[in-house]
């Protein structure tokens, strides 16, 4: 049985196939045309990698900004739930997730089953997101990938303190005009983003077992600053942090299928007591057993 999760964000689309409780294949590509179209393409690509066909899919769950446009999906879940269950599946000790995506930043606290217990999400302001890092890196004249390594070589953090990400650019420019070291400015940028995220994390009560996901988790400098700001060390994840949403969606597809089957069984049991014998069948996914109600 194969379960699929498709996550279409504002910039990239991701698909994950789950077979026998393992990630059978995944695929990421930039969003193109419409979300529905992107979802279809990314799902096809993942199916190809797994050498499977569309008909093999038991259930498909959609998530991300484009979730409402995926007409072929059987169910949809919010990114917050999906990121939670995805990271939990990737590492079962996870109880708190810090996800820094392109446009938003979420902090999700999970219960022992990997489901959302509490969450916080940045509102009105985008300072403290991946896009901010990207904009500021561009201002500084380095690539996003280079920002982290630069920051790690810094001697000190030059404050980039303005609250608005567009005006943080002015802070950066000011330092540049003064001829300050790019490394120190880079450190200022990463530290400032990390502080924003830490402030957001303060709105919920984190549970031990904190991990970081989303595109920004690949930026070692921000990750380091965040660990300092939160006073924790992040637990590792078994999969690419970018696909957590899609992975979570796939797990929800599986959960939903099992719930439906359980429901059928109960109905069946009520009408025919004999068939209850196979009701004890083990779930087919070892990774996220906790998800069962």
């Amino acid at each position: 049985m194969i379960y699929a999760g498709v996550d279409v964000g504002s910039l990239t689309a991701k698909a994950v196939l789950l077979r026998d409780g393992r990630v059978a294949a995944w695929h990421v590509e930039p969003v193109s045309a419409t979300p529905g179209e992107s979802a279809r393409r990314v799902l096809e690509a993942a199916l190809e990698k797994a050498q499977a066909r569309r008909d093999d899919l038991t259930r498909v769950c959609a998530t991300g900004y484009g979730r409402h446009e995926m007409t072929f999906a059987d169910l949809e879940r919010s990114e917050i739930s999906c990121h939670g269950l995805g990271t939990f599946t990737s590492n079962p000790v996870v109880r708190s997730v810090i996800d820094i995506g392109g446009q938003d930043c979420k902090v999700v606290v999970l219960d022992d089953a990997g489901l959302v217990d509490d969450f916080a999400m940045n509102d009105k302001c985008a300072a403290g997101t991946g896009r901010t890092l990207e904009l500021l890196a561009r201002t500084l004249g380095v690539s996003l990938g280079e920002l982290g390594p630069r920051a790690l070589r810094a001697r000190r953090a030059l404050p980039v303190s303005n609250k608005c990400s567009i005006f943080m650019e002015l802070d950066v420019m000011q330092w540049m005009h003064q001829g300050r070291r790019a490394e120190d400015i880079a450190r200022g940028i990463t530290a400032s983003v990390a502080r924003r995220v830490a402030a957001l994390a303060g709105k919920v009560t984190l549970r031990p077992g904190v991990c970081i996901s989303g595109g920004v988790s690949k930026n070692a400098a921000v990750v380091r600053e965040l660990e300092l700001a939160l006073g924790v060390r992040f637990v590792p994840l078994a999969h690419d942090p970018q696909i957590m949403g899609a992975l979570g969606a796939a797990c929800f597809a599986r959960l939903e299928h099992e719930r439906a089957r359980e429901h059928d069984r109960r109905v069946l049991r009520a009408s025919d007591p004999v068939s209850s014998v196979d009701a004890a069948a083990t779930p087919d996914c070892a990774g996220c057993t906790g998800g069962a109600p």
């Binding site: 953090a157 830490a198 303060g202 984190l206 031990p208 904190v210 300092l228 006073g231």
Partner: peptide, 24 residues
């Protein structure tokens, strides 16, 4: 309310001897 009681022990606080400016 940033972390629950006793969390800091579990969380393994990294040493801050690298000159990073920590939150005041």
């Amino acid at each position: 309310m940033l972390v629950q009681d006793g969390f800091r022990q579990i969380g393994d606080v990294p040493a801050s001897d690298d000159g990073l400016r920590e939150p005041m």
